[in-house]
């Protein structure tokens, strides 16, 4: 296991696996989109707009899943202090924000014909909005703290604070919602989804997950390379120091 966690080995692994993963992603998403737009039936109540579901639901699912990936990476940072965990956290945060954003936008697009307005303070949508804000906070934290090790630990702590809080926020928002508007309008099937709608949904969920895995691996790879570049820059700065002013430094 530790062998796979070695950054150099990881880079080789990614280089070998990534083309195949991309191929699988494109294939799955292609099939999924074909099913979404051509084979899946229109809903007898919602009409063609129900097709938004095939993007909205996988995005919603991923917005949670990516937070779990970040939580595991945060534990890796805090408990094992592993640089790959740091890079994984950093690469996952913007992807999480991205899928959460897609979830919000598609939810809003779906809401327009259903509710007649672009935004409704529906419990589910509102919870996702708060999750989006938490992602943005994590990204802001990464961007503000310059030193990567400190940024990784700070963001890991915030991620864990979030994992404790997200269920509480969800519970609060549900409670708040029932207080203010008794019935939720957003209906999306429920457990008894007809197979003709379930299959496209599952394929799209798989495709979106593969897309995330590809992007995440690429992000981790970029972060490792960025750190190496940073280390080289330090060495270059020191070398310059050594050549230009050895006397002042030694005499200070």
């Amino acid at each position: 296991m530790l062998k796979y966690a070695n950054p150099t080995f990881f880079l080789r692994l990614v280089a070998a696996v990534l083309p195949w993963l991309w191929a699988a992603t494109i294939l799955t998403l292609g099939v999924g989109l074909y099913m979404t737009f051509l084979t899946a039936p229109a809903d007898y109540q919602q009409g063609e707009t129900v097709r938004i579901m095939y993007i909205h639901v996988p995005a919603a699912w991923l917005s949670m899943f990516i937070y779990m990936v970040m939580t595991l990476s945060a534990l890796g940072t805090l408990v094992w202090r592993h640089p790959l965990a740091d890079a994984s956290q950093q690469a996952a945060a913007p992807l999480g924000a991205g899928f959460t954003f897609i979830c919000l936008v598609t939810g809003s697009l779906w809401g327009k014909p259903m509710w007649g307005t672009w935004w409704v303070w529906d419990a589910r949508l509102t919870s996702v909005l708060v999750l989006f804000l938490i992602y943005l906070g994590l990204i802001a934290l990464w961007n503000t703290i310059e030193e990567p090790l400190m940024a990784a630990r700070a963001s890991a702590i915030l991620t864990l604070v979030g994992v404790v809080n997200i269920p509480i926020i969800k519970f609060s928002v549900d409670w708040w919602n029932t207080l203010h508007q008794p019935a939720s309008v957003l209906r999306m099937g429920g457990p008894a989804l007809h197979p003709s709608m379930l299959w496209p949904l599952l394929v799209m969920a798989l495709g979106a997950s593969l897309l995330f895995v590809c992007l995440h691996l690429m992000g981790v790879r970029n972060e490792i390379l960025r750190r190496r570049l940073r280390r080289l820059s330090y060495l270059a700065a020191e070398a310059a120091d050594h050549v230009l002013e050895p006397q002042t430094e030694a005499g200070a």
């Binding site: 708060v130 804000l133 938490i134 519970f171 708040w176």
Partner: peptide, 12 residues
């Protein structure tokens, strides 16, 4: 930015 999302439950 970091703190306000987590104050939602207390506010509600």
């Amino acid at each position: 930015i970091l703190v306000l999302p987590f104050t939602v439950p207390a506010l509600i």
